[in-house]
Design a protein around this nucleic acid. Sequence first.
RNA 1: GCUGAUGUAGCUCAGCUGGCAGAGUAGCUGAUUCGUAAUCAGCAGGUCGAGGGUUCGAAUCCCUCCAUCAGCUCCA
Length: 636
Amino acid sequence: MIKLTLPDGSIKEVEEGTRVLDVAKAIGSGLAKNALGGMEDGSVVELNHPLTRDCRLKILTFSDEEGRRILRHTASHIMAQAIKRLFPEAKLAIGPAIDTGFYYDMDIDRPFTPEDFEAIEAEMKKIVNANYPIIREVKTKEDAAQFMKEKDEPYKVELIEDLPNGETITFYSQGEFTDLCAGPHLPSTGMVKTFKLLSVAGAYWRGDEHNKMLQRIYGTAFTKQKDLDDYINMLEEAKKRDHRKLGKELDLFSIQDEGPGFPFFHPNGMILRNELESFWREEHAKRGYQEIKTPIILDEELWHRSGHWDHYKEDMYFTEIDGATYAIKPMNCPGAILVYNTHLHSYRELPIRLAELGLVHRHELSGALHGLMRVRCFTQDDAHIFMTPDQVKGEVLGVIDLADHFYNLFGFDYNVELSTRPENSMGTDEQWVMATDALKDALESKGMDYKINEGDGAFYGPKIDFHLKDSLGRTWQCGTIQLDFQMPERFDLVYIGQDGEKHRPVMVHRTILGSIERFIGILTEQFAGAFPVWLSPLQVRVIPITDRHREYAESVLMAVKDVGIRADMDDRNEKIGYKIREAQVQKIPYMLVVGDKEAEAGNVAVRERKAGDIGSMTTDDLINMVKDRIKSKSIE
RNA sequence: GCUGAUGUAGCUCAGCUGGCAGAGUAGCUGAUUCGUAAUCAGCAGGUCGAGGGUUCGAAUCCCUCCAUCAGCUCCA
């Protein structure tokens, strides 16, 4: 007998060799029905896995991330099997589960169309109904390679050949279909009840743009039809929150054929943007930042000195002035450095925090452009902090706190990544280790969870990145903290220390919002266009019921505008429902309906965009309520 | 940049195997003066993304380019 410790702490004794599924059955038939796999001492195992030692065991269901992955991985095999039946010439590459479903990469000359999905799904249904047992098998590397050569699956052969020698190589078979796969899988194809193919797109073999482009079919799978329906519904809802759609509807910005990736901000968008920027300025002034502004076009020679020429030229735009070449800045750092170098600095002045809302231009690939999220010109809420080496930790912690402050204000969830030394970077290994450890140390002393992104740092130093989610859950880098020992060296930055000698300062590049444009995109999706009152382009709309109330409405409007609230009046000759609907569609936070009753009592009938009609109050009370909301930056 | 899809009125979209370019909505004009998500009528609105080709005839078929969307790659 062996002892299993279950998640609730209870201990279950079973015979050695008992399968995970049998344990689930012994616990309860409901659990057995929902079981998709097991977690044995922290590693994922299949339902058919025999337990041979004392362990901690958890039965995985669809509510576990790992459980979902097992289901969806099996679904991807079923899809591959169906495609091989319909298109035997398709060559299989890889087919993993992902957070929202699964995909399989195939090499086939004929492009898949969404119309093919129906046929593939129908074939998948047959495979599910046939309920083939899924059988695991181990082969030696030689046998495995031989097997896939015979099947004429070149991508699989390549995968096998890249595995270390002596590795056990597992295969999974269901019916006539056998695939190289590490597993785990469900015990049979009949357990994949609900699935749907979603899209097809190109993907490079092994993610390398020099390799052949394969076709990737995305799908998803659930245990219940309702969950699938909810997921499809969620995708529909997310489309309504898309900042590109809302940006047009709310007249915030536009992107035109005349300037791909170069957004135009409209009056409404500028109000929001200016509010955001003035808040940003206040918060930075409070924390000892000084604001600067540096030119957009600077001599090419500067970019040779900074290292951008060697490491970033491909992403830069250039222009010519009086026969000399100038670069359009892709980053603000060299400008900030030139400002620093206009004086000799004392250690007493450090840290010097030079902030800049700097407009940068970068040549992004045309296919990468995405609304305001990825553009070719954007305003970084940049700052460069010049400091002594022993001030680094304190400064980095200060920036982490500031980022947290901003993100919390909007109720954003964010995740943190630490990016290490990339290829084609400047400096010595020692400098990189030192810089990377300093950032790690700061994160750990904050007790923050973070993911390491190997080789993803800037060319001059490692970085901490803050990622925010859009309406579809895709993440976008916003804040960043980059530690730099290189530029101070290259520009011979110095400060005079206590000893009267010259010393080399350390430099931090950092953003909080990242790019104002991207941040506005994220904000739009987070609030589905119903911005917090303080950011709303229009905060109050006065709506007289008929012409005869116009005069009173005018006096209300004047009173509201007088205290600095952004307000207008809809005195068109339309029915009240029509005007309300329009204001509602524009997501105006407060609608003030005024008719006979209000004019007589000196009141306003208040409709809030989310709560609806919240009753009558005096104009003064309304003004105070709105002012409080604005002042507190309430997100409701 | 790559793979695939898409591009028709300000916006959302219809337009079949090639045969007079449409709807809803927004806009303008008039009527209606109305109590919390769409009042009625009329008018106007187009180089069918751009350029080339096939054809008696092209929004529709072919080619090239541009832009957008999804994904890959890349990145704030």
